[in-house]
């Protein structure tokens, strides 16, 4: 698969603060790429540079093979951004907002109406078109934000912490739309998030800490490398669990045993088949990966947990 985003040796400082330091990574075409980090880790700085909002101190950014320094207008056309907070004009209607933003990409008249009709189907917007953006619910506004980002049919959809502050139902709806887009249009999705369960769904994850890459790989690679596997064993007593000689903790209705990897779990099961009647094996979570990699726990607001 070819690279659609190539970032090499990117660096950016704000006076004495080194926001991004020698950052290099690739995003492949069509993949869901997750960029993980606590607030202030350098995620937004990287996105702002990528989108041409911020100048960089060094390094190169290539979008769809085009160097951003040489053809910023071309790279901007390939990116559609959903900001963390809605940035549409609250006093205007949905249609007015989309029409004015489409014009910035040279989409007018019939071309706009055609694209609007497509987005109405994709995002179920028809009933919202004449409503004022400021009066929409959080979920409705998010759908309009996505429509704005997709107006010019970008190749990459950048989602900057898109689900922060949204209720579970709206989150589900948003991910449904993103999933459809990926299936139907093979769209690349660049996601920044501090929700670990969202990152776990990604094809590739980069964990950034203090402006540097702390770890990268597929969620499975990261889990295998940075976390243990867990066997949850039911219907046994504590003495039996102790006899396995592995670290464990009591959980509801059973015991959670920590093993180095799946191979060790298999060998344990083969050695003590009489104990493993009712059990389940799970990999560590992305939270564990994040903690192991950065030494930090991320809280619900994306900040570092004390």
């Amino acid at each position: 698969m070819e690279n659609i985003i190539e970032i090499s040796h990117l660096s950016k400082s704000f006076k004495d603060v080194k926001a991004v330091q020698d950052l290099s990574f690739r995003v492949k075409k069509g993949e869901l790429f997750a960029f993980l980090g606590v607030n202030g880790a350098g995620k937004s700085t990287t996105i702002s540079i990528m989108c041409g909002q911020l100048t960089k101190d060094g390094g190169t950014v290539k979008i769809n093979g085009v160097n951003q320094d040489e053809h910023a207008d071309t790279t901007k056309r390939d990116l559609g951004v959903v900001f963390q907070n809605s940035v549409l004009d609250k006093a205007l209607t949905v249609r007015d907002n989309l029409e004015s933003r489409a014009a910035l990409y040279g989409i007018f008249g019939e071309a706009f109406e055609k694209r609007l009709a497509q987005l109405c189907v994709l995002l179920d917007l028809s009933d919202l078109l004449n409503r004022t953006v400021g009066k929409l619910s959080g979920g409705q506004r998010r759908r309009v934000d996505i429509a704005r980002a997709l107006l010019h049919e970008p190749k990459i959809l950048v989602l900057d912490e898109p689900t922060t502050g949204l209720d579970p139902q709206t989150r589900k709806l948003l991910w449904g739309v993103v999933s459809d887009l990926r299936k139907q249009e093979n769209m690349t999705v660049f996601l920044t998030t501090h929700y670990m369960e969202e990152a776990a769904e990604a094809d590739y994850v980069v964990v950034i800490d203090a402006g540097k890459i702390a770890a990268e790989g597929t969620p499975l690679d990261l889990k295998n490398e940075y976390t243990a596997d867990f066997i949850t064993l039911y219907g046994v007593d504590e003495e039996q669990v102790k006899s396995l000689g592995k670290p464990y903790e009591k959980v509801t209705d059973g015991y959670r045993i920590s093993v180095t990897n799946t191979a060790e779990a298999t060998s344990l099961i083969q050695k003590y088949p009489q104990l493993f009647v009712d059990y389940e094996i799970v990999k560590g979570k992305m939270d564990d990966v994040f903690l192991a990699v950065t030494g930090k726990k991320i809280n619900g607001n994306g900040g570092e947990e004390a």
């Binding site: 041409g52 909002q53 207008d73 990116l79 940035v87 549409l88 609250k90 933003r101 910035l104 704005r148």
Partner: peptide
């Protein structure tokens, strides 16, 4: 203040 400026400059205008 609202961030609309960032949205406008995100485009090739």
């Amino acid at each position: 203040v609202t961030g609309a400026r960032a949205d406008l400059t995100m485009s090739p205008v």
